[in-house]
Amino acid sequence: MLPGITTLAPLVTNVRAEQPAAVNDHLVKQTPVQMRRELLETLVVPASKKVSPLEWMRTAVALVSGAGVWDFSQALAGHHRKGSMRREDVPLGRCQVSR
């Protein structure tokens, strides 16, 4: 005899809730502390800006201006100096590599 739907529904709900938490815990253990800090910093909106760095990186460029290109190049240079970003890490929509 199989259990009824009222017995299975809470079990399924619990498994669905536990699975993402287990995956998240595994990923956290695999991620270096410095990288976790940098990722958390991308969630904070700087006082002089309207959006977080994460939102800025994830949003497609609608209009390329001289100021926008300058801001991007300065941000990229800062990451290169810290050694936390390689050119391959930059989303293709954010830069064009000349050959």
Rank of each mutant, 00 (worst) to 15 (best):
A22T: 02
E55F: 04
R37V: 15
G68F: 06
V44K: 11
A67P: 11
S65K: 06
D25S: 13
T6D: 11
T42F: 03
Q19Y: 06
V33G: 02
P91C: 05
A21C: 04
Q34A: 15
V45D: 00
E41P: 07
S84H: 13
G66I: 10
M35C: 11
V23W: 02
V44Q: 11
A75I: 00
V61Y: 01
Q96C: 10
Q96V: 13
M1W: 06
E18W: 01
L39H: 02
L92T: 13
M85G: 01
L8G: 03
Q96T: 14
N24F: 03
L63F: 00
I5N: 10
A77E: 09
P10D: 09
T6L: 12
S73Q: 12
R16E: 10
P32R: 14
M57A: 07
D25C: 14
A47G: 09
A21N: 00
V61E: 03
R16P: 04
L2R: 12
R36W: 08
Q34C: 02
Q74E: 07
G83E: 12
M1C: 12
D89W: 04
T13C: 09
A75T: 06
L63H: 06
L27M: 10
T59W: 01
V64G: 09
S73C: 08
G68T: 13
G93C: 01
L11Q: 12
R86H: 03
A67G: 06
L40V: 15
V44S: 09
R58K: 04
L63V: 03
E55R: 06
L27K: 14
K50G: 04
P10W: 08
A67S: 07
L54A: 05
K50M: 03
V15Q: 09
V69I: 15
M57T: 05
L43P: 02
A21E: 10
Q96L: 12
T42N: 03
Q34G: 08
A60E: 07
S84A: 13
S84T: 15
V51K: 07
S65L: 04
G78P: 04
P3G: 02
K50A: 03
V45S: 00
W56Y: 01
M1Y: 10
K50R: 00
E88D: 12
L2D: 10
V12H: 03
K82N: 14
L54Q: 00
V12M: 14
A17Y: 07
L92C: 11
D89N: 01
V33A: 12
R81T: 12
W56L: 08
A62G: 03
F72L: 08
V44G: 05
Q30I: 11
R99V: 11
H80D: 14
V12E: 06
Q96P: 00
A9Y: 02
I5Y: 12
K49R: 15
R36K: 10
V45R: 08
V90H: 05
P91Y: 00
A75R: 02
M35P: 10
K50N: 08
T7S: 15
T13N: 11
V45Q: 05
D71R: 14
T13P: 08
Q34Y: 07
Q96H: 13
K50P: 06
T13Q: 10
G78D: 11
L54Y: 01
G68D: 07
R86I: 02
S48F: 09
P46I: 15
V51Q: 12
V61I: 00
A21K: 15
V64A: 13
S73H: 06
S52G: 06
L11G: 15
S65I: 01
S52M: 07
V23E: 06
R58W: 02
G93F: 04
T31V: 04
D25A: 15
K29G: 05
L27R: 09
L8C: 01
